[in-house]
Design a binder for these strands. Structure first.
Lengths: 205, 205
DNA sequence: CTGCATGATGTCGAATAATATATCAATTAT
DNA sequence: ATAATTGATATATTATTCGACATCATGCAG
């Protein structure tokens, strides 16, 4: 009999749950993760559900794509490691995917404004400033902030004081660039709302 | 092609190396670990050598027997986790196997003394006290301390003040029992000599 | 020197993961 | 309401692990 246990042990189940939690926290779908790693979407589903006993290289491939590593940890150190892991985790309730989507919508909004109002002062400046944001690869930006910038831009045609609105958008973008340039510490991440479930949570199936 | 890479990636190699290091640190042979886990000795050899891509349950079984757990850790947290793991690791240069050997030799020495000097006061008390030590499963006892106790017992026939020597042995054994009953902290382990290689060491094969 | 223990390697059959591909029900976006 | 996306499941095939067993070279204890 090959299977070590007829039902996955607790540890393998926590690893499977950790993988799914890390993937959803980053706002990635199984198909996107499959494209990133080469592991088929169907197999990712089975791994996360704990219905297969995956090979080490499969776990490692998925972990790497999620900016994580598989590690052997002394049992005594497990509580401390969970605490550290919780602190090191990136954005949770507001996902990277949402940030990417808002960035794309801002790009489109700026193109539309250039077509609609080519003579408006400050549009080119806005575009250049926003292009500076796109240079950062780690798009750990609050999507709510991005949405507010986009909505200000979208309302420009119907705004009486257009110059003032442009100035506000520019200031917001500059603030984001400064924030990204000076990588915020993990302690700052502590202020973010905690996920509904976390790594050290007992999750009885 | 099923194999994810023709050669194991760095992470899988570090896991394999961690397993072997944890096993040797505990003074266990592959055959003993096989008896503890049910994983065949030949398979353990291949897993540690990184010549197979083991299933998750195989890694978990071996990790558990070595008082460790497999965990997913954010890459950012890996250095901190390694530091904590190093601190939490049990005996290294002085192995459990050496402790077991000394415990056995003490048993034998006590039997010999009972045969040689059955009328000696305190021998029965020594035996009872020592039997109390054997009740503890986690034999995390410094084998040097055990060897000193054994040598004191071995020298009893040629000792002028036999009662004093018996008293010293009794006190040593009582001290060990107290130590085991009140699990020593990880900070105490820091005073032990560090292994020649450790978890965070770059180990180019 | 001899015997024993150890880690490594080989072989074979059985079981399972992995892959490719398709499809479905449910959910979300438009 | 419709289209798109998602996670889960099915099927056939292939590749690999796993377990059982044997054996070997090496190092160590006595």
């Amino acid at each position: 009999m090959q299977k070590r246990t007829s039902k996955m042990s607790y540890n393998t189940e926590t690893i499977a749950a950790s993988l799914r939690e890390a993937r959803t926290a980053k706002g990635l779908s199984q198909r996107v993760l499959s494209a990133m790693t080469g592991v088929p979407q169907a197999q990712i589903s089975r791994i996360e559900a704990g219905t297969v006993d995956p090979r080490t290289t499969s776990l490692v491939a998925l972990a790497h794509a999620l900016d994580m590593e598989l590690a052997l940890v002394p049992r005594k150190a497990v509580p401390a490691v969970r605490s550290i892991s919780r602190q090191a985790i990136g954005p949770s309730s507001k996902s990277i995917a949402a940030s990417l989507k808002e960035m794309n919508r801002i790009s489109e909004t700026l193109r539309n404004l250039q077509i609609k109002m080519p003579a408006l002062e400050g549009i080119t400046q806005l575009q250049k400033s926003f292009a500076g944001l796109e240079r950062f690869q780690s798009l750990d930006i609050d999507p709510d902030v991005l949405r507010n910038i986009r909505k200000t831009m979208e309302r420009l045609p119907d705004t009486s004081d257009q110059q003032e609105a442009i100035e506000r958008s520019l200031n917001s973008i500059r603030g984001l660039r400064n924030q990204l340039a000076h990588q915020p510490l993990a302690s700052q991440a502590e202020d973010r709302p905690k996920p509904a479930y976390s790594l050290d949570e007992d999750d009885d199936a």
